[in-house]
Design a protein around this nucleic acid. Sequence first.
DNA 1: TTGAAAGCGGTACCAG
DNA 2: CTGGTACCGCTTTCAA
Lengths: 338, 338
Amino acid sequence: MTRTKRASSTDVARLAGVSQSAVSRAFSAKGAISDQLRQKVRAAALQLGYRPNALASSLITNRTNMIALMTGDIANPHYARTINAFSLGLQERGLHVLLISLVDGQKVEDAVEEVLRYRVDGVIVISAALSAEVGEACQQVGVPVVLYNRYVKQPNVCSVRIENSDGGRRIADFLVDEGHQRVGFISGTPVDPTSADREEGFTRRIAQRGAEIVARVEGGFDFDSGRSGFAQIWTGQRQPSAVFCASDLMALGALDAARHDFGLDVPQDVSIVGFDDLPAAAWPSYQLTTIRQPVEAMVKTGLDLLMARINDPSATTQTVLIPGELVVRSSTRTSGAG
Amino acid sequence: MTRTKRASSTDVARLAGVSQSAVSRAFSAKGAISDQLRQKVRAAALQLGYRPNALASSLITNRTNMIALMTGDIANPHYARTINAFSLGLQERGLHVLLISLVDGQKVEDAVEEVLRYRVDGVIVISAALSAEVGEACQQVGVPVVLYNRYVKQPNVCSVRIENSDGGRRIADFLVDEGHQRVGFISGTPVDPTSADREEGFTRRIAQRGAEIVARVEGGFDFDSGRSGFAQIWTGQRQPSAVFCASDLMALGALDAARHDFGLDVPQDVSIVGFDDLPAAAWPSYQLTTIRQPVEAMVKTGLDLLMARINDPSATTQTVLIPGELVVRSSTRTSGAG
DNA sequence: TTGAAAGCGGTACCAG
DNA sequence: CTGGTACCGCTTTCAA
């Protein structure tokens, strides 16, 4: 019984002996229709395996109930949990997710162009890769955009992000408080403002406190770059007593490098700090000191901003900054003095 | 200049002084149209910020170029990398991803129902949660389905999966070869056939080889259940010399429990084996012996199956079994004898 | 409440 | 190659 063509509202109407309007009303929540008629329609629909075509209706309602989620590498656990939270949150709100993975070399504009063809009701940008062009293009066609942990000097684009600079500052304070005077830093992808901001706050405060950054290497936010970054630092001219990595994943790599590639004792020989508070940061093997990103809260905020704009496109745009929380575990030395 | 209404092909046609058909052709790859006309149309389109409405065209072409990806917990690294691979592969093929996260309590049928409204060209099921109903519903409306690491006794549904039973068998052989006689097992979610198959192959072969399963606990595929599962095993009546966990994530938890909660030496005191070969399995802290799932190859196969069915719905359905590969690292003891 | 008819934004067939 | 026209499946006035 393979049917090559799906039943349409016309088919249902014919079978039920009612008008097409009746079918439409039977499936719409606020349709003014008698129970009796609705029953009849539903029965016919069931018999034909009819399901309303959401795309056809979008044509007239101007709502697709689809939101584009533009992301970077999903395999990166930080993105993974963010996507997960957004995906669940959107579904709870009755929206569907059009997932776009930005590939490294890919032209961002093309991806946006593509998405706009699908008439999504909104766009959420999580990726590290894009920014201004997107806001531009979407704004022109009136599609609300929310930037997650990104920002752009553009008006009319909402964003939520963690206080990166402040996070870096807290880590600097913490390390100096614990007696560190020579520290190192492993950055994320060079172009990423997230990494830059964390570094800025860190660097500035380290200097203010009279400590010194004796090594800095460029990483790429992934495990391996943390591992090789640490190696580069440790084999360099001056060895720091603590290394701050711009992301947890890199910190895990750095920690493993310290322990397993160099046979060091962490935190006695060197302290390691990350940023994000991934689940793995709490695993017994790592016990990483880090800045916690309250993902749930951030995602909720992002969704609220998006929904607000969708429901009222003229609503003022907002930028919400969310403070991180220093989570001290045992990858960092605690000074005897307290 | 915020426009509340987007330009349509009619608008472009009017501005360019051409027919609507011309606009359509100008944006379709195989449109028989002169370069000159195309230029003119494109210019007008650019001026109006026009983009073809993919949804409207789907109405007539019966193709949306959207594929539903139904998944479980994205935060689980195993799912994350699978989704990543599918997402990239689909994009390469010019398809878009409608991402559906199955929530635990959620009725699967509802999710499918929802997806079918969007007229996706195909469905890929990665989740642990669903199976038969989906195939049923989709098949009735002629939407190709591919099951990833799932199966169902249903005809007309394609699937790819790793040889779970065989993987369990190989691990049993490996452990016995290395001199283990008393082993333990931590399962995944009880209802999951993936876990059951791995266990079946493992258990049977362990018995065949004259070794013994001295402990078995139920886990849930996550880190914590591996950790607590190991604790349960180790504090039980008889301690095994090796524990096989139905997934890597659980194995990492078990390994951490052994080392950090019980102060054991892995692999001297106890060997730990997982299944999946997550990136983390290769991290220096873990060095987990496991069965590698060739994710890229499996996903490619899944996509090929899906595309074949989309292009020819009458194509015969296939089930592809892909063998896993035993990856021996240092979480397992190597017998001196070799 | 119910039905008829006019589109929503495109595509495809047809004649020229 | 180009334009006219019917129609995809649904929602939404507007009358009845």
